[in-house]
Design a protein around this nucleic acid. Structure first.
Ligand code: ZN
Ligand code: ZN
Ligand code: ZN
Ligand code: ZN
Lengths: 134, 134
DNA sequence: TCATAATATGTTATAATATAACAAAGTGTT
DNA sequence: AACACTTTGTTATATTATAACATATTATGA
């Protein structure tokens, strides 16, 4: 089990920038933003991202190959994640809904198989974009 | 609206190979497999994939960057997709569960926003791999 | 049937995303 | 100090995806 609390230098740098961002960040955009701090290679970013994901500090938005900070805390260690994604702007919100989470965690398929992890991505227009489209 | 039924030559070739496959195929693996048929460039594959996705004939497994044939039919035009993914072998099954589909289609977040599309990926061990692990 | 719009194809080049492999430095434990 | 373990730095390369442009094919409908 990597680090329960302490983040390494690079991990902290990467987490900071992701937490400050208002929308998902791509790995190479993170890289570009931390070159002044002496991080020069994609490996350094991807390694930090991997650890942060393991720790549940960030999540990967699979449909965008981008990364967001966890805002939820009941998706402990990223076992149960759900997001709403605006198809117009780049906005992504983590959905933290106990009922939904329970429903999906308890879901079993037709063969009775249960799953230990899931990721759900909803797509639509965020409130802001809905108004602007009118 | 592209083609309701008829597939173009390349689209048919790509669909055929995806339908025959037992697990998700990656774009470049499709490419290598169709070079004997005169398809030489990634563009040709990605264009076919895009159209097939639009038509709902195939789906992209976002966490794997791979493509599977639609086995469901009630995920009309890929608005509501769910998959179970084995973390050990490469197996992916499309989940076709009316209750689940309705539950998610009707889901609205805390602000009352509904979504017009979703993609859900479950992760775990398939039956075969569960047995082998014992 | 012939213009014409829309779709699909072929092709070359390049962008964007991600990993392999190896050497060195730091950290904590005994 | 010796040891295992994690993190870092670095170079190179693999994988996934798109841009841009020229041509061909296929509706469609005047
Ligand atoms: Zn979270
Ligand atoms: Zn929006
Ligand atoms: Zn389907
Ligand atoms: Zn399996």
């Amino acid at each position: 089990m990597a680090q329960a609390q302490t983040l390494s230098r690079n991990q902290q740098i990467v987490l900071d920038i992701i937490e400050k961002a208002k929308s998902p960040l791509k790995a190479y955009s993170i890289l570009f933003n931390v070159q002044k701090k002496g991080i020069n290679a994609p490996q350094q970013i991807y390694r930090a991202l991997d650890k942060l994901i393991e720790m549940g500090k960030i999540h990967k938005i699979e449909s965008k190959n981008a990364f967001v900070a966890c805002r939820s805390s009941d998706c402990e260690i990223s076992k149960a994640t759900a997001f709403s994604i605006c198809e117009s702007c780049e906005m992504v919100d983590e959905i933290s809904d106990t009922k939904l989470s329970k429903y999906l965690s308890n879901f079993s398929d037709k063969k009775g198989t249960k799953f230990k992890r899931f990721n759900l991505e909803f797509f639509g227009l965020c409130k802001k974009c809905k108004i602007e489209t009118k």
